Simulated scan of single mutants.
Amino acid sequence: MKLLTLLTLFITLLLDDSLVVFGQDVKRDYVNLAKLSVEEEKKVIALAYKCGLQEPVNKISTHNMYPSPFKGIRVEGKEKKDGRQVTTQILSVSNRDWLEPNAKPRKGQISMGKFWAGKPYEQKKIILNVKGKQYRASSIQGLSPEECEMILNVFLEQKYQLGPQVKDNEKLLDQIDWTNPSGFYKRGDSISVGFLHKEKDSGFFDLQIIKKGTTITIQQIFQAIP
């Protein structure tokens, strides 16, 4: 009987989220007023594994849910590379303290204390290599990866030209994070390239461009604001 009690206690301790171990190799990216304590991080990681995220956790981040005042948590698993394609498991986690007062888990979601989540999903991105550095795009359509690398290099070096409609909005270019492309799309002769805003959770930009050889001309800029 005593042996059974000790065995039960041992199993309980193994399942306790306080035994979740992680160190400096876990990346963190927290926005203001949405930072997790070490104990909260352990709870979130334990929840992620319980929801089906494969070990190990690679990154924990928080984000603003504009235009509302609420905030969310994102947990990322380890990247899996297959040629140019990178696949990452992503889990969205809710924190009761950062949502509306009546927020609660939906049917099928798993809760642990004030945190809850559903099932992780897979995010696929494409690796672009530019001068020894790797960048990731969420989508490429109608263009080859090599063409996208050439276009990205022009933007990184800011050697693009501006069309007449862009010159009035030239200041918008200073807000673009050229290291964070979201997608490259070509339909017929029309090419558009997306980039995120330099400020986290502040939307993205869609650039309509003309490509002639290695010359890139920005014809229009559209900004999406959350």
Rank of each mutant, 00 (worst) to 15 (best):
E170Y: 15
N153I: 02
V75I: 13
Y121N: 05
K35M: 02
I11K: 11
Q220H: 11
S18L: 07
Y135H: 08
I45K: 01
L36I: 00
Q158S: 15
W178Q: 00
P145A: 02
K42T: 01
S182M: 06
G213V: 10
G213M: 08
Q161T: 02
N180R: 08
Q24E: 13
R96T: 05
T87H: 04
G203V: 15
N153V: 05
A46C: 12
V75T: 01
P181Q: 12
E79T: 07
S111V: 01
S138V: 05
L91G: 03
Q24V: 06
L173H: 13
G183A: 08
L99A: 06
V57R: 07
S37V: 04
Q220W: 10
R28Q: 09
G203F: 14
N32V: 06
L162I: 00
V21K: 11
E40H: 03
I151M: 12
P145T: 02
W116R: 07
L207K: 11
F115I: 00
P145R: 11
Q89D: 05
K71R: 15
F184R: 03
P101Y: 08
H63I: 08
A103I: 12
I221L: 08
T87M: 14
Y185W: 04
S18K: 15
R74N: 03
R96Q: 14
L156M: 07
L207D: 00
W178D: 06
M65E: 08
W116I: 01
Q223V: 08
M150G: 01
Q141N: 13
L9D: 05
L13G: 15
I191N: 00
I225G: 03
F205A: 11
K200A: 09
D206H: 14
V31W: 07
V31Y: 03
Q85P: 00
I151D: 03
P101A: 10
L13N: 01
E40W: 09
E79H: 15
D97K: 13
D177G: 05
Q158N: 14
